[in-house]
Design a protein around this nucleic acid. Sequence first.
DNA 1: GACACCTGCTAACTTCCTTTTGCATGTGCA
DNA 2: TGCACATGCAAAAGGAAGTTAGCAGGTGTC
Lengths: 118, 118
Amino acid sequence: MSGDPPLSGDDLVRVLGTLANPHRLRVIAALARERAYVSRLARDLGISRALLQVHLRKLTAAGLVSAQLELSEDGKAMKYYEVKPFVLRLTPELIAVAVRTLTPPDAADRDGAGGWSE
Amino acid sequence: MSGDPPLSGDDLVRVLGTLANPHRLRVIAALARERAYVSRLARDLGISRALLQVHLRKLTAAGLVSAQLELSEDGKAMKYYEVKPFVLRLTPELIAVAVRTLTPPDAADRDGAGGWSE
DNA sequence: GACACCTGCTAACTTCCTTTTGCATGTGCA
DNA sequence: TGCACATGCAAAAGGAAGTTAGCAGGTGTC
């Protein structure tokens, strides 16, 4: 994901929700320095592998990191993660644009008021 | 572009967490168009005042919006909210910088606002 | 007084997120 | 065979966040 293609409102919420966590920010920071495999990352960050896996799953789902399975020289399977170079810019105006592509709370029974188009 | 974002890691998490919500994004979008008082905003957004109050409180705490109590012509007290013009830029590298100012998993949380906007 | 509008709060419920614990798989090496 | 290292997942507990419902106050007008 890059900053150029306008992120949909729902995607924006998803990305923001993914970013709003100290552990995940640390993961991004660590991977920004150099890619790493799960166990090593967990050791570096000082958290359990299970916990890291959960966070990595969310980061991947949000498209902020990517993974690739590789085989080390001694034949062990290592899953290397790396950050996707993203650029996210946020201002009230840009948010106003993204909000238009948010899925309505309840499209079923709402008396219009037509605020989503414009 | 010069002395850019002195946004601390903890503040960043707080701001991101505040932004990661459809309702709050809608509030920002609405206030970006024009300032409004609580009851009117609630009507426009189609949510209860109680719910809106909670979200406004969080937005205020994050320093994304500000409020000012005013008296209407007929003497009614109205609390007008408006967005603070912020500019938030996010990249893996910028996140790596912010992470250095994150409170480790033991210290208390810091407080502070401003500096990240322009 | 009754109504319509404005503001604020809390208690309680529900739902989601975070974290731990435990188990399962596989490899290579002494 | 047993240890060390790598991977994965799911259930369960604890906590934080979202939401509703109900209460309080204020003003001005018919």
